[in-house]
Design a protein around this nucleic acid. Structure first.
Lengths: 194, 194
DNA sequence: ACCTGAACACCGTTCAAGT
DNA sequence: ACCTGAACACCGTTCAAGT
């Protein structure tokens, strides 16, 4: 079921990768899916809802991959490996990444659900790392938010080229590694204190 | 000189705040500036260049404010105060913030210049904090990139609502404070080690 | 140098109509 | 329920023409 709907989303994702959100036109989507420029309106209220559906599908896929891919089984799913995967995703699919954090996110229920799901996976990994003494103690949700924010910011700044001075820019992955190094040191301090 | 150009940029910024990049139309900009829908082409090659000019002006203004505002003189300009200012800027002018990290940044020379200038101010503050023992040792440019990435990611995630689970979300400012707390602890560890 | 108005090809969206 | 084609109001951009 919904295969027409799915093919519209796929067509939109393809256009998005090629030309950004402006490159996604309902007319173009219809054309690519082999229907009239008007058929999408039977599946999506407007263009924004189609884009939100693209973002939700992409978010869902990436979370699924993080859970099921090689190296993704629970024991190997460290916070750092999840964050590295995150910045690589942003690099590989820059337009989908940008889209996932656009205007509609706040209001789209599916997208909010996917965000919550992704966050809960990260929180679980954080708890394990805390128990292993690899991350400092403290509210795991809060620490997870810190990690996510750093990975997100590093990825986004790298995409816009703002990290580089004159070519010798740190990679987003380097900054992720730096953060974990500092957190590890912070962990040791907290332990050695009363 | 350039007052017509400036008024076009101002009109564009106003439209941007009201309706995002899609709300900025060359026709609307011309109308708001009291010229024909076609006059902007004498000052900007196309719509993207107009938007890039808006972003560059905003970036420049915020950097100027960070340097000259009360509490902004050199001694008070700590990395943390700069980062708090950054996330507040994102919150207050979300559309301008988003615009500043859009597609054109990589290619626009003025925007790249402003980014370099902002980064150098942060790097200077980082060096001072390192000398005072408030931040860990290491390449200051790299540490500045870490701080900026965290502030940027926290601000961007907060804007898209992705930080909240069920309303009890950490604020972007909280995450900035958390990072500095961890870095402070990391500093002490590094000192107490051989 | 700067601006205007007409024109072109496109777009999102609406609507009446078909199966 | 799903799709089509015509239509409407808009847009970015180009061009010939004015001062």
């Amino acid at each position: 079921m919904g295969s027409r709907r799915d093919s519209l989303i796929s067509a939109a994702a393809k256009l998005l990768d090629r030309g950004g959100p402006a490159g996604v036109t309902l007319r173009g989507v219809g054309r690519a899916a082999g229907v009239s420029h008007n058929a999408p309106y039977k599946h999506f209220a407007d263009k924004d809802q189609l884009l939100a559906a693209v973002a939700a599908r992409e978010f869902r896929r990436q979370t699924d991959l993080a859970v099921s891919s090689p190296g993704g089984f629970v024991g190997e799913r460290t916070p750092q490996s999840l964050m590295v995967r995150y910045v690589r995703w942003a690099q590989r699919y820059r337009e989908r990444f940008k889209l996932t954090f656009g205007r509609w996110v706040r209001d789209d229920e599916t997208l909010r659900f996917e965000a919550t799901r992704a966050r809960s996976i990260l929180v679980a990994a954080v708890k394990t790392a805390q128990a292993d003494g690899d991350l400092p103690a403290g509210e795991p949700e809060r620490l997870a938010a810190l990690l996510w924010a750093l990975a997100h910011g590093a990825a986004d700044l790298a995409l816009s080229g703002h990290l580089s001075t004159e070519g010798n820019a740190p990679e987003a992955e380097d900054l992720v590694a730096d953060l974990f190094r500092h957190l590890k040191r912070s962990t040791r301090t907290a332990r050695s204190l009363p």
